[in-house]
Design a protein around this nucleic acid. Structure first.
Lengths: 184, 184
DNA sequence: ATAGATGCAAATGGTTTGCAGCTAT
DNA sequence: ATAGCTGCAAACCATTTGCATCTAT
């Protein structure tokens, strides 16, 4: 049982044999890395504030921390509702202003996951943090969204940009369709 | 001179030699194909109207024709201004309504080329017509946009969708960066 | 003390909608 | 005749902004 390929490592119960121990280490290291990243993000945030003469206010700090804890993207409105639990008098404008600030400084980025125009539809925000870059699959029926990442695709994009002498800074890539549950 | 590679065919003056003649034919055929496509689009439009009990009004026809002549994507507003020259009393609402109708029925599609949220920014529309599918490169500095098409990328998207059991219907793929002129 | 941040309410602006009158069928 | 269209103006709605007030520095 302990001879199984490393591929299967992560499906095992920990501590059962040497492989189990290795798995424990891996998990420990992983958690550690995440912790460090979080720490360094907070540090980066502090440095960012002081370097730009921006004030460390109660609401700004709370928005930053609450937002960074999210591992799913969410709308400004949704974040606002979460924040209200901790600080009832917080204003929507402050949330929007702070989110914008975070986006402009690499702590967050904004996504438009709606397939097409219509009434203004709210955009989503996600923390840049420890998360790898990813793009999205959106179900046009139930609205569910999945994330995907494909290295070949990323490389391809860079090549295309190069071909047109573009200095690539970001991209939007959303695939729309019907998800497993929604196409009969 | 007539021995040049076919690659160079299109840069030559027509009718100078055999290759010139071939070029003339190619152009003729190409124009012909475009004509036919245009014709069949108009026919499809007529059929679409009658099959759905929709009326063939002056404004609807004009919007359709004017829009289909565009070979660059444009905003509803821009189209509205063009239309006003031919039919001054036309209303924005009619333009929006018709554009929506065209999108819903495969004659047009809508693009959001703005990198990120902010105030509602207008989306672009482009005729489906004879144009191949393409995606966009947008310069975040000067706003210029280029089109690109990459078959590998398209195939890759299909594979990704398949991997997640998604029935793909459309996608948004925009690369943002600085164009040749804008990055010093 | 004071530049900067906040909360409120009003403004924005692309797009949609209600409605009374118009027009293809 | 009548169901569908149109133009107008008002409504929508996510986001931004002006401003008086508050607060980190």
């Amino acid at each position: 049982m302990c001879r199984t390929a490393s591929k299967q490592l992560l499906n095992r119960e920990p501590g059962k044999c040497k492989a189990g121990k290795i798995q424990d280490w891996i998990i420990k290291i992983h958690v550690n890395i995440l912790e460090r990243m979080k720490e360094s993000t907070v540090t980066a945030y502090d440095r960012f504030l002081s370097m730009n003469g921006l004030r460390d206010t109660k609401q700004r700090r709370l928005i930053f921390e609450t937002f960074m804890e999210q591992n799913e993207h969410l709308t400004a409105e949704a974040l606002y509702h979460i924040l209200q639990k901790d600080l009832p008098q917080i204003g929507q404008a402050t949330v929007y202003r702070t989110l914008k600030l975070l986006c402009e400084n690499g702590f967050a980025h904004e996504l438009s996951l709606h397939s097409h125009g219509g009434h203004a539809q709210s955009s989503y925000f996600e923390p840049t943090l420890a998360r790898e870059h990813h793009d999205h699959l959106v179900c046009t029926q139930c609205g569910r969204h999945l994330e995907f990442h494909n290295e070949v695709l990323e490389t391809l994009q860079e090549k295309i940009a190069e071909e047109y002498s573009f200095e690539l800074t970001s991209h939007t890539h959303v695939l729309y369709g019907k998800c497993k549950n929604c196409h009969s």
